[in-house]
Structures are given as C-alpha cells and as structure tokens.
C-alpha cells in the first residue's frame, strides 16, 4: 500500500516538475500519463505478489482458508512463522543453505581475488596459456550427464561438499577481478616489491584491500547464487534429504498438493505437530515457506542494489 502512495506522490511531483521547464502540450500530458501508468503497473506487478503472499501468512488462518484475504491483512498473527520454526526439515534446509552460502561465498571470493591477481602477473610461467585454460571453460560445457557422472566419480554426490567445491573457481569472477586489479596503479605494487615483499604479502596487504569494491560485488552475486541454488541439490543430493537446500525443500512442498500439513507435521519434533497440521492448510504452509525463502533477499536487496548494478556494468566491459 505504501508503494501506491509513493507512486502517487511521485507522479504529481513529476508532472509539476516538468511544467516548470516547458509548457506541456496535450500530447506530452497524454504521453506522461500513459508512461507513468505503465511503469506504475509494471512495478506493482513485480511487488504485489510478494505483498499478497506476505499478508496471507500473517493473517488469521481461518480467514485465509475461506479466501477472505485479498488486499488487506486481517487478524494479524505470526503464529505461522512460529510453527514453521518447529519443522525440523525446514530448519535443516535453512542450516544447509546458510552454511553453503557463507562457506561457498568466502572461498569463491578468496580464490577469485587471488587468481584474479595472479593472472595479471606477466612473469608467471606460461601465464597466457593458463589464463586461456580458465577462460575457455566459460564457453563450453560437457553437458549435464557427464557432469553428473564426473561428480559421482569424485564422490561428490550425497555430500555437502558438492555445494562448495565446484563453485570455488569461477572464471567469470576471476576476469572481473583481473580487470579491476589492472586498473590499480602498478607503482604501488612495485614499491612494495622493491622493499622485498613477496607476492603473497603484496596480495594480502595491497591488492586485497584495494580490490574490496569488486570483491564485495562478486561476493554478493555469489551469495545470491548460493542462496537460490536448486539444481545441484536436486541432481546430486536427491538421496540425502538432510542436505536439501531451502529452494529444493520449497520445490518439494510446492509440488505436494494434498496433505502437506501431515508431511510437515511428521517432520516436527514437538508434541503439538497435530495442532500445526490442523491449523495450517497446504496453501498457508506453501506461502509461509516461500516467505522464509524470500525474506533474506528482500531484506538485503535495497542496501545492495548499487553493488548489483556495478556488477552488471563490470560484466559489460569485461575483456
């Protein structure tokens, strides 16, 4: 609802803003109205579904079941979220997903930083060859099945490490860091070299701190990727429910059309599992888990918007 009012304000301000510059023809006014209307509707279509799911999870369950909640929440309660905390399966997935996001992102950022620095060093043994060796991997892949067989040959099926190790080396991010490191004046590094600093010291003390903006950007992209990942859980860890990621768990719940309540209840530790099953129907459980999955992204998103944009722009000028 807040968005609507914001939009209205923005619209008025925009029109009055324009009139101060040039006299608007009727054609301009029609154009502006249509333009604002289009973007208003499109923006609403992007934000309303989240709002709709959210009001359904915080409204009174009986009202939701009877289909009384459309635009305004009623009988506000957070009991659904509290009930979800008791579902062990879900907790498990949250732990796995948070774990892989933290560990996977940290390793990826460190390796991208180091490798991005190393590939700028002309004096490396066969630097060109090794750089190409990495970059080529972006443009071909062997296909899903050979990849799966390879992972199972390496023992990375039904294994938490399957989420971490393959993602450590990311050629695209290495290129981004390389481009950034090349823009750092080489004099800084040279003077350190003259003072007898090793490559490792130069990397830790100079390159890493100076590359923080790009490292932050790839960290955020990496973290979102880990949070959203679903295929590796589905394909590699399908026999280990304790390793399912949050997205995979959500996918399973979304595809359980009936008696989801009973399934969820069977995965709870507490004695009031029957109560949960009774109070929540499939719809409410699905909505609540969707919200649990989406809230972290929605919460961090506005603050990180500029990093996302920067990442996109860097991607556009890679070379």
């Amino acid at each position: 609802m807040e968005n609507l009012t914001l939009k209205k304000k923005g619209e008025n301000a925009g029109l009055s803003d324009n009139t101060t510059h040039i006299k608007q023809t009727p054609g301009d006014i029609v154009f502006n109205v249509i333009n604002y209307l289009f973007f208003g509707v499109f923006t609403l279509s992007c934000i309303f579904p989240f709002y709709y799911i959210f009001i359904n999870t915080i409204s009174d369950n009986e009202l939701v079941k009877s289909g009384a909640i459309t635009l305004i929440p009623r009988g506000i309660t957070i009991s659904n979220y509290i009930a979800m905390f008791k579902v062990n399966d879900l907790w498990n997935s949250v732990v796995v997903t948070v774990g892989r996001t933290l560990i996977g992102t940290c390793l990826m950022v460190f390796v991208s930083g180091l490798a991005g620095y190393l590939v700028t060093k002309e004096e490396m043994w066969h630097r060109k060859f090794w750089y190409r060796f990495l970059v080529i991997t972006m443009y071909f892949n062997a296909g899903l099945i050979p990849w799966y067989l390879n992972m199972s040959m390496l023992g990375l099926t039904n294994n938490f490490m399957a989420y971490i190790i393959p993602g450590i080396v990311s050629p695209y991010n290495i290129i981004l860091v390389k481009t950034y490191v090349e823009s750092i004046p080489s004099e800084i590094e040279e003077s350190a070299f003259m003072d007898g600093a090793s490559y490792w010291t130069i990397f830790c003390k100079i390159i890493w701190p100076l590359s923080k903006p790009i490292l932050a950007t790839i960290a955020i992209f990496g973290a979102v990727g880990h949070w959203n990942s679903f295929q590796d859980s589905l394909i590699l860890n399908s026999n280990s429910p304790e390793l399912f990621t949050l997205q995979h768990r959500l996918y399973i719940y979304l595809n359980q059309s009936s008696n989801l309540g009973a399934i969820v209840a069977s995965g709870t530790s507490s004695t009031d599992s029957a109560a949960i099953a009774g109070a929540m129907n499939t719809k409410i459980i699905q909505y609540t888990i969707s919200m649990v999955t989406i809230i972290p992204i929605l919460c961090v998103y506005p603050f990180l918007m500029k990093y996302f944009e920067k990442g996109l722009m860097l991607g556009a000028v890679k070379g």
Binding site: T43, C46, I47, F50, V224, S229, L254, Y287, S290
Partner: peptide
Amino acid sequence: VQTFTTIPNFISWVLVYAIAIA
C-alpha cells in the same frame, strides 16, 4: 521503478513458481 523491477531477477525460479501458485 528501477529497484522494484529488478527484484524478480534475484529470486530463483522455484520462488517464481511459488508466486505463480499464489
């Protein structure tokens, strides 16, 4: 507009499906 229209890009397809269901 720019902030809100870019959000869908950062949610997974599973969540898009959850929205479709909703």
